[in-house]
Structures are given as structure tokens and as C-alpha cells.
Amino acid sequence: MSLNETGSVDDTPEEIRLSVSSLNKSFKGRGAVLSDVSMQIRCGEAVALIGGNGSGKSTLLRCCMRLIEPDNGEIIFLRQNVSSLNKPQLRSLRSRIGLVFQKHNLVPRLSVLTNVIHGAVWREGSMRTYRHYTAPDRVRREAMICLEKVGLPHLAESRADCLSGGESQRVAIARALMQRPDFIIADEPVASLDPKVGREVMELFIRLNREEKLTLLYVSHDLDHALDYSDRLIGMSGGRVVLDGVSRKFSKGDLNEIYR
């Protein structure tokens, strides 16, 4: 099954999938975390977001999903103004965006298959997706296809807390795919993985980006990954965007400047 068959991915290459304008966010005691942040991400792009600790990358991602409320500014995500959405509309928007976390955030005591099926929660809207044994066959089948895409169909019945770090992150990606997403956001997806597994996961992301035409925005501290697995780089420092351009035009030395 291709995600395109569902009609969820637009093939128009220039369509802007995410547009952030003059976004600001501050926290009590920490001051401004995001200052006048603006950026755009087009359909099918793979964009790496880089920057030092505390530069505002994760806050920016969470603001885009409205997991954190921004102070002001505009976010247009998949043609919807994120700030003006009511709760059901926001849930609907979130269901179209696969978010992959650094800590994977699987539900530990449940099976891999159940965790993947949770990706269909909004679409199915039924209690049957709480566990794999109550889910409809077509949902279970789709979850197995998503597990196949990440190379782990044999672990479907394993418990999520018995997986290695790499396997766990792949399951999190399968869960995101189960959402039939138009966009994937990954917040330091390989930070807790060893270099070999980290590279495998990044290759999986980029394969999904190329083959499934999934727009990808990920945060990385690994500059090699950022250069190798992205079309475009956005650099942040002190809550501001300080670099935005095509990846091949940058060297590792250029990127190191951001961390000074």
C-alpha cells in the first residue's frame, strides 16, 4: 500500500506545507525561547533543524503542533491556521502529522502491534483501537504493513518495553506511518541511538521521504546526519533562525558556527 493511494499526500512540489511567520514564545523564568521565527517547508522536502541546546528547536516543533501555545505569530500547517483551530479541528490536524520523539514514547506494557494501531486512533475514532485484539482486521493488516515498512513485522506481538532502542524508534515511525501522515516531524529521533542504528533510522526516514513523498522536518545534533539526510537546513541560535538554505551548499564548518 502506498500512502499516495489514500490521497493524503499532495504531489504538487511547490506547495507550502508549513509556514511559520514571526513566531514568539517565552516561558516564565526563561525569557524568550523563540524570537520572531519565520520559515517555510514545501511538500516533499526533507529539512533538518539544527542548533545548540536551548536554541528553541523543540519548542518550535511543539508550537507547530500546538502542544505548546505560542505567544504570537502565525503558523499555517497543511493550509490551516493552527492558532485559530478549535479542539476537534486541532485533533484532526494533528492526526495528519506524524510526530516522532527522541524517547520514542511508546506505551511500555502494550504490544508493538497495539502501539502501531494507536496511530489510527483519530481516523477510526473507536474504542476498538485501544488494543490490537479488539481492532478490526483491516486496521490490524494496515498496522502490519507499516511494521513491514520499518522492517519489524516479526516483532508485532512483542512487548514495547522489551525492544532495543533502534527497534523502539522504528516502531514509533511505524506508528507515525499508521496515521497516513502528510508530514513527519521528528524531534532528535536518533539522539539516544548508537551511530550505526542512528544511521539506519535516518536512512529509513529519508527512504520514506523519497519513496512515499512524505515531507520531513527533523531536529538533529549530528551535523553529518543533517548534511547527508536533508534537502535543506535551518539553523537556530538563541531562539532565532540564523541559517536557512540548501544543504549541499553548506560544509560542516559552516554549521559548526551556529554552536559557537
Binding site: L67, R94, L99, F101, N105, V107
Partner: peptide, 15 residues
């Protein structure tokens, strides 16, 4: 973490 993951997928509070 898992709560945030489900929230980010559009899950309702009961789910």
C-alpha cells in the same frame, strides 16, 4: 511521553 505521543496523534482524553 506516551500521553504526549497520543495527544500529538489527535487522540481524545478518554483514549
Amino acid at each position: 511521553g506516551p500521553e504526549e505521543a497520543l495527544q500529538s496523534m489527535g487522540a481524545r482524553r478518554l483514549h
